[in-house]
């Protein structure tokens, strides 16, 4: 287990900058998520931590020791790859034992460790199977076992659930969370799925366009994204132009107290779930222009006065297209950029 610290890390491939000035600290034994869209640089950051890439500038520090130039073999920062990358010609047992053998672990200790981890991932009955004979969930458990058996300083999970179908994905998330809780290793989860990042970790770092946008709790990132880029990535928000004056944001939906400096050209962010539709008279009248049923909730597109179009995410399914309705804005709903 280790405390991981990145100090002003940059990475470029020729002219193309992939990471710019990334600094963050991950606590010993923490379950931490790196969130960002595809191509944002989060996997590169993971590879820098694992030692599979060298930073163009900056430092990678494990437990206060500079590991920037330590080889991948000696870092014990083990990646569970997105496609699991199991060795196809080795059995489950041999795959799990591979790293221990490479590290010269004596035979008796090796067998004991493999035996224990096989039990932990519930794969004792498949230990003689080849990866090609396993299901997606089983393959992932082998990949996790292969990494965990080495008692890594840090376990790096690269989009580990993206190849699994919906039902299996949730059970594997629970499985990984329980495993991390039990073994208490430092764990970094890379994902583009914000729900996954929020559910699995206590702190999340969001990278957009090669830059770290915010490091915070899932709640803070969801409710108070610091940058417009981060807000755009999180999505599911309406933007209304307005102005900030004396701690208030003035826009088409009204006046809202905000903690922002005065600005004549401000943009207010209203999340879809912070707007509510009602048939009872209210300050903002509108009309349902479109509706999409999505199971637990329904997405509505509503036009209000002065031609503004807003999206609303509602648990109520009973409004119909063309219906005249009223719009309510929940208190403390606005973020201003």
């Amino acid at each position: 287990m280790a405390n991981i610290r990145l100090e002003h890390v940059y990475k470029s491939y020729g002219e193309q900058q992939v990471l710019a000035d990334v600094s963050l600290e991950i606590d010993d034994g923490e379950m931490f998520a790196l969130l960002g869209p595809s191509g944002s640089g989060k996997t590169t950051l993971l590879r820098l931590i694992a030692g599979l890439e060298a930073p163009s500038a900056g430092k990678v520090i494990f437990n206060n020791a500079d590991f920037t130039h330590v080889s991948a073999q000696r870092r014990k920062a083990i990646i569970v790859f997105q496609d699991y990358a199991l060795f196809p010609h080795l059995t489950v047992w041999q795959n799990i034992a591979f790293g221990l053998r490479a590290g010269g672990v004596p035979r008796v200790a090796l067998e004991s460790k493999v035996h224990d981890i096989l039990g932990l991932v519930h794969l004792k009955d498949r230990q003689h199977s080849l990866p090609g004979e396993l299901s997606g969930g089983q393959k992932q458990r082998v990949a996790l076992a292969r990494a965990c058996v080495l008692e890594p300083r840090v376990l790096l999970l690269d989009e580990p659930f993206s190849n699994l179908d919906t039902g299996l994905r949730q059970s594997m998330r629970d499985f990984v969370a329980a495993l991390q809780e039990r073994l208490r290793f430092t764990c970094i989860l890379v994902t583009h799925d914000k729900e996954e990042a929020f559910m699995m970790s206590r702190r999340v770092a969001v990278i957009v366009d090669s830059r770290l946008q915010q490091v915070d709790t899932p709640e803070a990132i969801f409710t108070q994204p610091l940058t417009k880029k981060l807000s755009d990535f999180l999505g599911e928000a309406n933007y209304l132009d307005g102005r900030v004056q004396g701690g208030n944001f003035y826009c088409a939906l009204g006046i809202f107290a905000v903690n922002a400096p005065d600005s004549a050209n401000a943009v207010g962010r209203f999340r879809w779930d912070q707007l509510a539709l009602t048939r009872e008279a209210g300050p903002h009248q509108g009309r349902v222009a479109a509706k999409s049923y999505a199971g637990k909730a329904t997405y509505y597109t509503v036009t209000i006065e002065r031609g503004h179009t807003l999206n609303v995410f509602s648990a109520r399914h009973d409004f119909f297209v063309g219906e005249e309705i009223f719009l309510e804005v929940l208190p403390s709903a606005v973020n201003v950029y």
Binding site: A50, G51, L52, S71, A72, Q73, R74, K76, A77, I78, I79, F81, A85, F87, F98, G99, A102, G103, R146, A147, L150
Partner: peptide
């Protein structure tokens, strides 16, 4: 990379 990451030479 997988092998190196697992500590192999």
């Amino acid at each position: 990379e997988v092998a190196y990451n697992l500590g192999a030479g």
